[in-house]
Design a protein around this nucleic acid. Structure first.
Length: 285
DNA sequence: TTTCAGGTGGTGC
DNA sequence: GCACCACCTGAA
């Protein structure tokens, strides 16, 4: 494979934007970091981001990616301060969660990639999901070139996944989820489904639309709505969140009703902040 | 060697 | 509508 072509450099302001928190909170799977250097694959571009005192310097390789694409991908055009202020005023825990997660942004990722990635996330954990996605990209994705000897691949398009046999899809750690990936890709191709449809739907209707795919239930649908379709009302409920809602608010059932009333306009941001906060407390013991 | 974590889909009530 | 279980694999 050839060396990936350098396509230019962008700079991003660090004000109210923390790249580490943004890629470390479980919303994306194609980013890694070592110290202040981050590497990720976004569509057909490889991004190498270096954190400096007052800004992030982004080198683009592979296909070009404009500054505005980058701004949109990391949701940098949204002013988070009013959201933070509303959430911080709710209670002490949210206040601490906002303080610890300050700068965490809701990413806007490609619908097909997000759909398949979160199908893989069911009954699974982040390191394994990442392994599987890299294996799928290597087998079915477009080669983007090498950087320092390492090969990078785009996330697979729908067509090769739809055409692949279950044996071919049986990559590392995928397990029974190969069937869900296959069914979903086949359905999109055979029924010529337009994945941009949920952008125009309410969160409720979008959830129903996404659940037409085998392997997509309430939680996975809400992740896709939040991380690809910019539905801030979506609130993915997994076992962590259930425990958190029980511990912090004594909520045992009807989670969605509580969420709608308590987090008002920003359930998605609240969910990410609380998830990040709880997980960090857990990791620190 | 065994056990566990983690959503969805299906079955049976 | 709710309760239960199979599904698969890496990590502990």
């Amino acid at each position: 494979m050839k060396e990936a072509k350098y396509q230019g450099t962008h700079h991003l302001e660090k004000s109210n934007f923390d790249l580490f928190k943004t890629i470390d909170c479980g919303q994306c799977f194609r980013w890694s970091h070592k110290g202040e250097r981050f590497i990720g694959v976004v569509n057909k571009s490889i991004l190498v981001i270096v954190e400096e005192a007052s800004q992030y310097t982004v080198d683009v390789y592979g296909s070009p990616l404009s500054k505005s694409d980058l701004q949109h991908y990391f949701d940098l055009d949204t002013d988070y301060e009013p959201i933070y202020n509303v959430l911080m005023a709710r209670d002490e825990t949210l206040k601490k969660a906002v303080e610890s997660g300050w700068g965490l942004r809701m990413m806007h990722q490609a619908p097909f990639e997000t759909l398949i990635s979160f199908i893989l996330s069911s009954n699974n954990n982040i390191p394994k999901i990442k392994m599987t996605i890299e294996a799928l990209a290597e087998r079915f994705g477009e080669p983007l070139g090498t950087l320092e000897g390492q090969a990078f691949y785009a996330f697979p398009e729908v067509q090769p996944l739809a055409e692949a046999s279950l044996e071919a899809l049986n990559v590392k750690a995928i397990g029974y989820r190969a069937k869900s990936v296959s069914f979903t890709a086949k359905k999109i191709v055979e029924e010529s489904l337009d994945l941009s449809v949920p952008f125009a739907l309410s969160a409720e209707a979008g959830r129903t639309w996404l659940k037409q795919f085998y392997g997509v239930g309430d939680k996975v649908a809400d992740c896709i709505l939040l991380f690809a379709y910019e539905k801030e009302e979506a609130f993915p409920i997994d076992t962590w969140v259930k425990k958190m809602l029980m511990t912090l608010y004594g909520v045992e059932k009807n989670h969605m009703d509580f969420i709608k009333h308590y987090f008002i306009a920003y359930p998605g941001v609240a969910q990410q902040l609380l998830f990040y906060y709880i997980r960090n407390i857990q990791n620190k013991g």
